[in-house]
Design a protein around this nucleic acid. Structure first.
Length: 1130
RNA sequence: AGAUCCGUAGCUCAGCCUGGUUAGAGCACUACACUGAUAAUGUAGGGGUCUCCGGUUCAAAUCCGGACGGGUCUACCA
């Protein structure tokens, strides 16, 4: 280890990335970063599998940066972090992509193309962009093990999924029920939400709407008395055909309702109706209030009405009413046929009710609405059943799949609820239902109503919501446990866990697993035709043995293709070809459903290890995860399914910390979309700016969970401002370290033996270490990154390096210089490590550049080193404070120097600056940084005016914070008093307690005592000097330029000019020179007086005057023109 | 529609939890300085009714309520 630090022409981040990437590949740096930690405690990370079916986008880069930096950080902290990659390979996007490519629709599958060929095609395309993904993974520096990834379509993976399902089945968590889904009677098929979101499916249509009246038969809770006639609950519907299926009414718990006495506008009978208070205006005219009830007749237009009671929705809960349209098919017996204790026809409360339209009371037909079904289940309303032709009770809705009423619904049986068949002379059954209600005194208002209603994209006919068979996981059974365990999870940001996720858990419904698609994990359940017997398969071995058993029992052709090798592929159509046999000897076919792909990814903690069939140890070690991170859109996706399955299967969390990152928007805050053409290409970005700048920008610009407005200008800024500065600092170091041959070979000089400024930057550095570590530990990389940035810019570059420049190029290679080198080297070295998690390429590059010469580490890469440990003994907060003071004072002096009035270059020395110290601490602090101030501002003396001086006029300002608490309303008065203090009073307060209102005995107020801490003392004027003020800090500059000062200024100016000549002539830093100068009356005295100083600065062996110079260089020094000759020696 | 996040300088963001009297930083812009870190650096300046309206308080960018605007997720409803 020796030689020179590599110096560069300019910073080229993309080429650094390339160089380091090649090195990593060569040296297996990633693999080693894991194997080197063998035997260390594990830190478990789960990779949320992306789908290689689509191209990677910039939003993938941000979440992967987040994952990567945490894993790298934890590795440096001494953990072993294995990172198994994975691929999500099932699901609708893949199927839709294939359909589009083949130019087919879902209905064509199994007709125009066999399921076998279709799935083969899906399998081909799932990894279509794997190369692109691998490429971005490498280029962005995301370390993940892609050699042994888990792949969700592989048999092993699916087998574990089956095992999970069978475990759930055994626990009674997997059950068959119905879910309310969009359904097209015209097409005879269910529609996915995707299909429903096709453009043009929602159309404005006019439908017959009805406000139906439900007669109350029990109101024990409300105890309304003295009411003449019947009481009714009013409920509005735009689909009167659902009224025979009504099983309940729902009200909002906190909505105000009223009971109104009035007449039925159709039958003119006296009635009392209940509706939401703020919807009265929809049904009653104001002038009819308390109208003429006595003389109301059928021909009176104005309906009299009167509010006779008022109550909250929750007061209505449980109220029972008479069934609206009873018929043979919807009797209580038929309802209780399957749900034995069903309790329909009462009022329920739920939060989904609004008073936007209707009556504030929602007609609830569980068969035909998702909300209705949910509320119905919660309140045990039951649903309809009838006796089928095999004499069994089965659930059946009052409308069949063709969209017509079934038998037993009275006069409506056989009629289509909408005109699905384009029947000539179709009579709308909804109108007939409304008419019937009118005649029976059960309708209050019937009218055409225009609204937006979804239609089938293929037939253009209105869809209905319809109960379809589906398999569910009973997540609600463990809801409390999920809520409880969720509280132990560290959510970043916290409110996603309590808010978005917490609310989601609170309102959880059972997980509908069923998907009627083709490319996915089949539900491993086989059923007999009558549905009496079923079997849930939990492994390939079990299936194979059942295959054989069925072949033996059932004989014939049964499973003949699967007898030799068993099943080879767990997908459709093969699983569907298999017939199993029930205990009673009946054949069983598989239920046709596939499962939700979210189950695939939610089960990855188990399936990635093919648990429990293999790798039991690996699983045990890696469950639950310490850390996961994905986009916030996964809250109800992956985060939920992981959590649900872990709780259901193992009564455990699946992850201890989860970071959810926000969306990446374009620079105008628009969502990126192909349509708008504002999608950022991550490849182009990384190619032009390098991975480090991109990563740094993504992490430091906004907290990961805030949405990020992506703007290339921001990356450029990071490049210049952060990486550029750090690179310059390194270049500076390398330049001089190479001259002096510094290789950190000398013994480490104790920090306390180094100059104040070295102690200061090292103190700041250790404070930074602490800060960065705390922030990384708290999963706040944005704060960590910003702290590093701030240190590099404000402290290291702008202050330490700038002030210490001379130390590097001046003087011999001895104590002070070595201190400077050791200090700057240490800063750079530590910075490499601190930034390594976020900017892995640059950090490693810088580390290698440094270490190649010093050989301080045997590690091949910064990523194999340990994270820096903070050295508390080096931290000196008082030192950091006084350096801040020095910076503030210098800044004030410099601002004075350049003010129009003064306008004196820094190169012109000045004699003195006065700084009033408001207390002894401040005085001591300034004293210690005096030299720094003098050097920085080129001033000879710093005169600290101690606190007791009378020279300056002090001003006191009330400390609102301390006084406000004590004084309250009298604060304003006190502030005025304090502002008016003279020097003597201020001194008194500083010395001891001071009574602010000596007349308190007379006025009768409480005495007010104030102390030093209750005021801030400052000054804004010092007679006869130029003054600048910042807070309580004041500096006064003596701008008198004596003859001596002038001469010294000339000398410095002269030095500067010669230095320029040296530089322009391309001399080396160490070249010695001879200088000849033309005689000049104005400057000669200065140059002669400061000859020694000048020669030392410009490395001149001689400096001589001659009357005239030919071919010299003309220079201008403070308005004088000189000719100069500068000759390099030797 | 509900949940949630956000709204501070032309732009990107701090500050808000824990209220305190000149609201900060960087970028950009303008001017100046520096010239052995030089495709680097420094200093200064302009630029803000802290989205709006109410409330609490001696005091509100900060706490509370409401409105408006934007993002996301969920839902699609009588």
């Amino acid at each position: 280890m020796s030689g020179k630090y590599t110096e560069y022409q300019q910073l080229n981040l993309p080429s650094i990335s390339e160089e380091i990437l090649a090195k990593w590949k060569n040296e297996n740096t990633f693999e080693k970063s894991v194997t080197l930690r063998e035997g260390f405690p594990p830190f478990v990370f789960y990779e949320g599998p992306p789908s290689a079916n689509g191209m990677p986008g910039i939003h993938h880069v941000i979440s992967r940066t987040l994952k990567d930096l945490v894993c790298r950080y934890k590795t440096m902290q001494g953990f072993q972090v294995k990172r198994k990659g994975g691929w999500d390979t099932h699901g609708l996007p893949i199927e839709l992509g294939v359909e589009k490519e083949l130019g087919i629709t879902k209905e064509d599958i199994g007709v125009k193309i066999s399921v076998e060929d279709y799935n083969k095609k899906c399998r081909e395309v799932v990894m279509r962009f794997k190369d692109k993904w691998d490429d971005i993974t490498q280029k962005m520096g995301y370390w993940v093990d892609l050699n042994n990834p888990y792949v969700t379509f592989e048999n092993n993976y699916v087998e574990t999924l089956w095992w999970c399902l069978s475990e759930l089945y055994k626990k009674g968590y997997l059950y068959e029920s119905v879910s309310i889904q969009p359904f097209s009677p015209a097409a005879g098929t269910g529609l996915s939400s995707h299909e429903l979101n096709q453009p043009g499916t929602y159309k404005d249509v006019k439908d017959t709407s009805a406000v139906a009246m439900f007669r109350i038969i029990k109101n024990e809770k409300l105890k309304i008395k003295n009411v003449d006639g019947d009481m009714f609950l009013m409920a509005w519907t735009t689909t009167p055909w659902t009224l025979p299926s009504n099983l309940g009414l729902t009200v909002g718990p906190n909505i105000d309702y009223v009971l109104v006495k009035t007449f039925n506008p159709y039958t003119h009978l006296p009635v009392n109706v209940i509706l939401a208070k703020n919807l009265i205006g929809k049904y009653f005219k104001p002038e009819g209030e308390n109208g003429d009830f006595e003389n109301y007749k059928s021909d009176v237009k104005l309906l009299p009405w009167k509010v006779i009671a008022e109550f909250k929705g929750k007061d209505l809960e449980g109220m029972e009413y008479e069934q609206l349209l009873p018929s043979e098919a919807n009797t209580l017996e038929s309802i209780r046929g399957i749900v034995k204790d069903a309790n329909p026809f009462h009022v329920m409360i739920d939060s989904f009710v609004t008073t936007e339209d209707g009556t504030g009371i929602v007609h609830t037909a569980p068969d035909f609405g998702a909300d209705d079904f949910r509320v119905g289940q919660k309140n045990n309303l039951g649903y309809f059943t009838i006796i089928n032709n095999r004499g069994q009770r089965e659930k059946l809705v009052l409308v069949d799949k063709q969209g017509k009423f079934v038998d037993g619904v009275g006069e409506f049986s056989g009629r289509y609820v909408k005109d699905y068949k384009d029947e000539p002379g179709y009579v709308d059954v909804n109108i007939d239902i409304a008419v019937k209600l009118k005649l029976e005194n059960r309708a209050f208002k019937v009218e055409k109503y225009e609204h937006n209603y979804p239609h089938c994209w293929r037939t253009d006919k209105p869809i209905i919501y319809y109960p379809l068979d589906a398999w569910f996981i009973k997540t609600t059974a463990v809801k409390d446990r999920m809520v409880e365990l969720n509280k132990t999870i560290n959510w970043k940001p916290a409110n996603t866990g309590t808010g978005r996720f917490g609310n989601w858990l609170e309102n959880m419904v059972d997980w509908n697993l069923s998907r009627s698609r083709f490319w996915g994990t089949p539900l491993p359940i086989w059923k007999t035709e009558d549905g009496e017997e079923e079997l849930c398969i939990g492994s390939i071995a079990e299936l194979n043995s059942e295959i054989k058993k069925a072949a033996e029992v059932l004989g014939g052709e049964t499973n003949k293709h699967y007898l030799h090798e068993g099943i080879l592929d767990l997908h459709k159509p093969y699983v569907d070809e298999i017939t199993l046999v029930s205990p009673s000897g009946k054949p069983m076919k598989r239920v046709p459903d596939l499962i939700d792909v979210w189950f695939d990814s939610g089960a990855m903690p188990y399936a990635q290890w093919h648990f429990p069939f293999e790798n039991k140890e690996s699983f045990k070690e890696s469950f639950p995860a310490d850390f996961i991170a994905e986009g916030v859109d996964q809250t109800r996706g992956w985060f939920y399914t992981l959590h649900a399955l872990a709780v259901l299967l193992f009564d455990s969390v699946a992850y201890k910390t989860v970071v959810s990152n926000g969306l990446v928007l374009d620079k105008n805050g628009q969502k990126m979309s192909k349509r708008l053409g504002n999608v950022v290409d991550p490849f182009a970005t990384i190619n032009s700016f390098g991975a480090d700048a991109t990563r740094w920008y993504l992490i430091t610009n906004a907290s990961p969970w805030d949405s990020l407005k992506f703007d290339e200008e921001g990356i450029k800024e990071v490049q210049r401002r952060f990486f550029g500065t750090l690179y310059n600092t390194y270049q500076f170091f390398a330049l001089y370290a190479n001259v002096d041959g510094f290789a950190f070979k000398e013994a480490y000089i104790p920090v306390k033996d180094r100059p104040e400024i070295d102690q200061w930057i090292l103190s700041s550095l250790n404070t930074l270490i602490k800060d960065v570590q705390d922030n990384f530990d708290a999963y706040e990389p944005t704060q960590a990154g910003r702290a590093i940035e701030d240190f590099v810019n404000a402290h290291l570059s702008n202050w330490y390096v700038r002030l210490c420049r001379r130390r590097f190029w001046k003087g011999e290679y001895e104590h002070d210089k070595i201190c400077a080198y050791q200090t700057l080297y240490e800063c750079l070295e530590i910075l490499c490590k601190l930034m390594a998690p976020v900017a892995p390429f640059f950090a490693d590059w810088l580390f290698n550049n440094l270490n190649a010469v010093s050989g301080r580490f045997t590690n091949e890469s910064v990523h194999h080193t340990d994270f820096p440990k903070v050295n508390e003994t080096v931290i000196d907060t008082d030192l950091e404070k006084r350096m801040q003071l020095a910076q503030d004072i210098s800044s004030l002096i410099l601002s004075l120097r350049k003010s129009k009035k003064v306008n004196l270059k820094v190169r012109q020395p000045l004699q003195k600056v006065f700084i009033p110290a408001m207390d002894s601490t401040m005085e001591a602090r300034i004293k210690k940084v005096e030299d720094i101030i003098k050097a920085e501002t080129n001033i000879k003396e710093v005169d600290i005016l101690s606190a007791e001086n009378d020279f300056i006029q002090k001003k006191a300002k009330a400390n609102f914070k301390t006084l406000g608490k004590k004084l309250g309303a009298r604060m304003k008065w006190a502030a005025e008093q304090i502002a008016a203090f003279d020097n003597a009073t201020i001194d008194k307060v500083l010395e001891s307690e001071y009574l602010l209102n000596p007349d308190h005995a007379i006025t009768g107020d409480e005495p007010v005592y104030i102390t030093a801490e209750d005021m801030e003392v400052a000054t804004d004027e010092i007679p006869g000097y130029e003054v600048a003020v910042k807070g309580s800090l004041t500096v006064a500059l003596d701008i008198t330029i004596t003859d001596d000062l002038k001469k010294e200024g000339d000398a410095r100016e002269f030095v500067n000019r010669v230095q320029n000549i040296r530089k322009d002539s391309g001399f080396n830093l160490t070249d010695r020179i001879d200088v000849t100068v033309s005689e000049n009356a104005a400057l000669q005295p200065s140059i002669i007086q400061y000859k020694d100083y000048i020669c030392a600065e410009i490395l001149a062996d001689s400096l001589a005057f001659t009357p005239a110079i030919n071919n010299g260089i003309e220079i201008e020094v403070n308005d004088a023109i000189l000719q100069v000759n500068v000759l390099k020696k030797g």
